[in-house]
């Protein structure tokens, strides 16, 4: 018998998004609801906007299925400015699934990052692509975005982004966690949720989204993360599949503990 596949569909309108999480730094998101047993698990497909005095940039694009509300959130956050840079952290639908409609909506926007393969995915966007590497800086005027190694990633052409001015780490697939909560709470920081995310919440998402974590020793990854954080002060961590984190030290410990717990599951 043919079994219909569960479709998440578009995330509903969320009046709390976009949310300004630091000056001229916006959190945009679609939060999917998926039944897992008796529970409804929420899972973010977030992306972020950083606006400088000269240029504007988004880090990731939101998920293709969420385009209607993603479009609304983007236009609201831009508040009449044009979008200059699209920085997909890696070529996976929750991270760059809106590249085609974005390129159409903002015909002057450049697509920058580790853009290997993108000319094959979307050959009509080839002249919009700009290859960047770890260590490169994107100047937005009064703020700089540093492209850094994606220490925990799936696809190898992944990059993280560090905002030197507001000290935000855009960590794409790291620091993810599910959240269970009432409607209207999707745009809460990890620390504002009625219940703080647990080690199990981060293990759950990481082991499923990054299946390789079930087969490796997590210590080299945890050490690399510590080394990167030792060099960069981080006030906020902005992941794709979890809420924004302001208690960065505590959540880093929690996330590393989650990584360590995966192999024991």
């Amino acid at each position: 018998m043919i079994r219909p596949h569960f479709a998440l569909g578009a995330a509903p309108y969320d009046a709390n998004l976009p949310r300004e999480i630091a000056p001229q730094t916006f959190w945009l998101s679609g939060c999917s609801r998926q039944p897992v047993g008796e529970e409804i698990l929420h899972s973010h497909s977030s992306f972020y906007m950083a606006c400088g005095t000269e240029k504007t940039a988004i880090i990731d694009t939101g998920n293709s299925r969420d385009w209607p509300d993603v479009r609304r959130q983007l236009l609201e956050a831009l508040d009449g400015r044009k979008l200059d840079y699209i920085i997909p952290t890696h070529p996976e639908m929750p991270h760059m699934g809106n590249l085609e409609p974005l390129a159409e909506l903002f015909p002057q926007a450049r697509i920058v990052g580790d853009i290997r393969n993108y000319h094959l995915y979307y050959p009509h966007l080839e002249d919009r692509l700009e290859m960047r590497h770890v260590g490169d800086i994107l100047e937005l005027g009064d703020r700089q975005l540093e492209l850094i190694e994606a220490i925990i990633h799936d696809l190898p052409n992944s990059l993280w982004v560090y905002d030197r001015k507001e000290q935000v780490l855009f960590a794409c697939d790291a620091y993810c966690y599910t959240h269970e909560h009432e409607p209207g709470q999707c745009a809460l920081l990890a620390e504002e949720l009625p219940q703080e995310p647990t080690v199990a919440d981060t293990s759950f998402v990481t082991s499923r989204a990054l299946a390789w974590t079930q087969l490796v020793d997590p210590e080299p990854y945890c050490q690399a993360l510590d080394a990167m954080l030792a060099e960069r002060p981080v006030k906020l961590i902005a992941p794709t599949h979890g809420g924004v984190i302001s208690n960065t030290k505590r959540m880093t410990e929690l996330f590393k503990e989650g990584m360590r717990n995966i192999r024991g599951q």
Binding site: S64, R65, W67
Partner: peptide, 21 residues
């Protein structure tokens, strides 16, 4: 992931059955 959650369609008048798992 359901394929319908992973694409942009410009011809929504084209009818398709739900995805199968």
């Amino acid at each position: 992931l359901n394929p319908f959650d992973l694409m942009h369609r410009k011809q929504p008048q084209r009818m398709h059955p739900p995805s199968a798992y």
